[in-house]
């Protein structure tokens, strides 16, 4: 029997046909879905929030402030929503950006989205040397300043209560302690990939060095490397300075006055006034 006739035999089988007819009736009725995702009017950035001080529009988490600031720099239309549940994000950590098309962006994808769509509102660096410098200063902030920030928030017993309130305070009773422990061990694990032992003095000393270098690189100019409009490095540096100034870490490291002014100016110009 050839393949074709064999298939015909099956198709013409009355029992098969009746089974198929019966199954074709299902599903009997399709209900309207109860929890459909609502259409967004503008892209929405889900973050940790609200900020360290009441009335602050920035998130309390440095990563969130960074992307929030970059989006503000780009003058794109978006809203920020305090979510405080990292498991909702596809990457397992906040923030994430939901576009009106339903696309969900995290990390580098947000940067790509912003530079593709709104490059006219962002400054550009003059040459490749400046781009290299920018990458180096970002690396220095992302290692030295981040070490100090993580250590100060998660490893200093005195700050445990404020970190607890911000990151896990909204969870129910036994869960909050478990999550606190989990986030803390994640922070320690990250620190230990860059430092063999966590020496408090050394971590703050290196952060001081990095802050001083960043302060010198900024100088008196409005944005980094003399750009007339802010670039990605401005978002990174602002996020660190802004968070450091709001937590007890600001008593342990020295934030130079030009960086303080720079951070206030960006906050007033971009975050507070909107556009």
């Amino acid at each position: 029997m050839s393949n074709q006739t064999w298939r015909n035999a099956i198709n013409n089988n009355p029992i098969q046909q009746s089974i198929r007819q019966f199954l074709a009736k299902f599903p009997l009725k399709i209900h309207r879905s109860l929890y459909a995702a609502r259409e967004l009017d503008v892209p929405r950035l889900y973050t940790w929030g609200p900020g360290w001080k009441s009335g602050q529009q920035t998130s309390f988490d440095q990563e969130c402030v960074k992307w929030q600031t970059l989006l503000k720099f780009s003058k794109s239309d978006f809203e920020t929503k305090s979510l405080n549940e990292p498991l909702m994000s596809p990457s397992g950590k906040l923030p994430f950006l939901v576009l009106t098309t339903g696309d969900v962006l995290v990390d580098d994808a947000i940067e790509k989205h912003v530079t593709d769509m709104y490059s006219e509102n962002l400054g550009s660096l003059n040459n490749e040397q400046q781009e290299a410098d920018s990458a180096a200063y970002i690396a220095s902030a992302d290692t030295k300043l981040r070490n100090a920030l993580l250590y100060n928030l998660w490893c200093e017993p005195a700050n445990e209560s404020i970190t607890y309130n911000k990151y896990v305070g909204h969870y129910a009773k036994p869960l909050d302690k478990l999550l606190f422990h989990k986030y803390k061990s994640l922070a320690v694990r990250e620190l230990l990939t860059r430092k063999p032992v966590l020496d408090k003095e050394e971590i703050y000393q290196e952060a001081n060095e990095a802050l001083q270098a960043i302060s010198i690189a900024l100088g008196d100019s409005k944005y980094f490397f003399g750009s007339s409009l802010p670039t990605f490095i401005d978002a990174v540096v602002f996020s660190y300075i802004h968070v450091i100034l709001n937590i007890p870490l600001n008593e342990l490291v020295q934030v130079q006055s030009n960086l303080v002014k720079y951070s206030e100016r960006i906050y007033n110009e971009y975050i507070l006034s909107g556009f």
Binding site: D133, S140, D142, A213
Partner: peptide, 14 residues
């Protein structure tokens, strides 16, 4: 000197 600090952290990282 400031650049040096930044680039040294970059080398140790990336």
């Amino acid at each position: 000197n400031a650049d040096s600090v930044a680039y040294v952290s970059f080398v140790e990282d990336g």
